[in-house]
Amino acid sequence: DLSALRVEEVQNVINAMQKILECPICLELIKEPVSTKCDHIFCKFCMLKLLNQKKGPSQCPLCKNDITKRSLQESTRFSQLVEELLKIICAFQLDTGLEYANSYNFAKKENNSPEHLKDEVSIIQSMGYRNRAKRLLQSEPENPSLQETSLSVQLSNLGTVRTLRTKQRIQPQRTSVYIELGSDSSEDTVNKATYCSVGDQELLQITPQGTRDEISLDSAKKAACEFSETDVTNTEHHQPSNNDLNTTEKRAAERHPEKYQGSSVSNLHVEPCGTNTHASSLQHENSSLLLTKDRMNVEKAEF
């Protein structure tokens, strides 16, 4: 173990290094160091905050020279020094078990990766560091076993998940096959086929009936047209017969005018059967003409 005197000496050296690497504005270890034209180094955030307070150039807090945003430059070497100082402080805390008085939040800088452990060898070769390295080497064999167990647990979990997924996939297939086998029997399929065939026959029977009705309507229309044509021909046949009657009536009127007047009046009210309204109107006109002729003949006879 380190003596108290040596611990104090190391602590004083760390404090001196820390004062050199402090920012003059925030009085902390410089984060993202930036250098000016006057070779003074500050935190990048502190300098941008200072420049944004005034429009135009501002003055350096140490030498009062003008500073602009374009004049600022990043210093990589200074950032490396800060990183190495942080590593020294971490090693000091691990070796002594004491917390550094002016320690900052170094938890963000710590890294437990194997590459980081290899890099620590180049920091300080001390008894405390050696003991700590031995402890780490002793704890390393235990870690692979834990990793193997965790991997086995994960693989077993994956296997159970896969088996569950396969079961879920197989179950719908089985149910679907069961439904297909038990849903419709052979008799049901035959009945469905016969039902479809009967429906098709009914459709075939319905369509000819409609065509037959249309044919019957067409035949009825044709018969009505033929009947009207026969009526017209009958009226045409009746007209010459009426003319013959008129000639006979004229002759009778010349011989017996008194008797014919009474008979002509009675004939006005008689309509021949089986004739249309057109034929009756023609008869009325003929009878009126005959009456006028008879009157003329009677007057001539009187004179």
Rank of each mutant, 00 (worst) to 15 (best):
Q53S: 07
V82R: 02
E229G: 13
K250L: 09
E202K: 04
T275F: 12
K192R: 04
Q138P: 08
H256Q: 12
S75N: 15
S197R: 06
I123H: 15
I20Q: 00
T247I: 05
L2I: 00
A220G: 15
Q80Y: 05
I67V: 10
S139Y: 08
L94E: 12
L289D: 14
T207L: 07
C26E: 00
T163H: 06
E142A: 14
H278W: 10
R130D: 08
D231L: 08
L217A: 05
R212T: 08
P141K: 14
L158C: 03
E8R: 13
K108S: 11
D66A: 08
S216D: 10
K49I: 04
R212G: 11
L146D: 00
L158N: 09
K49E: 08
E285L: 06
T76M: 04
S287N: 09
Q201V: 10
Q209A: 10
N243Y: 14
Q147N: 14
I30R: 06
T149G: 12
L137Q: 10
T230S: 01
R165I: 10
Q18I: 10
K134N: 15
E83D: 06
G56E: 11
Q18Y: 14
G199A: 06
Q80A: 05
C46L: 00
M17W: 01
S145N: 15
C46N: 01
N143D: 05
K54H: 04
A220F: 03
Q53F: 07
T247V: 04
T163G: 13
F106W: 02
L136M: 03
V82Q: 06
S103M: 15
C225G: 14
E99P: 05
E214L: 03
S280K: 07
K221S: 02
K293G: 11
E9I: 01
V153F: 13
P114V: 11
E299G: 03
S219W: 04
E299K: 09
I215D: 12
T207A: 09
P141F: 12
L245M: 12
Q154R: 07
N246V: 04
M127I: 12
V82P: 05
K49N: 01
I89A: 05
Q80K: 09
K19T: 02
Y129P: 08
F92N: 00
E285F: 12
L137N: 09
L146T: 15
V7S: 03
P257A: 04
R70M: 03
E202Y: 02
P141Y: 11
T76P: 15
T166G: 07
E32N: 04
E22Y: 01
I89E: 01
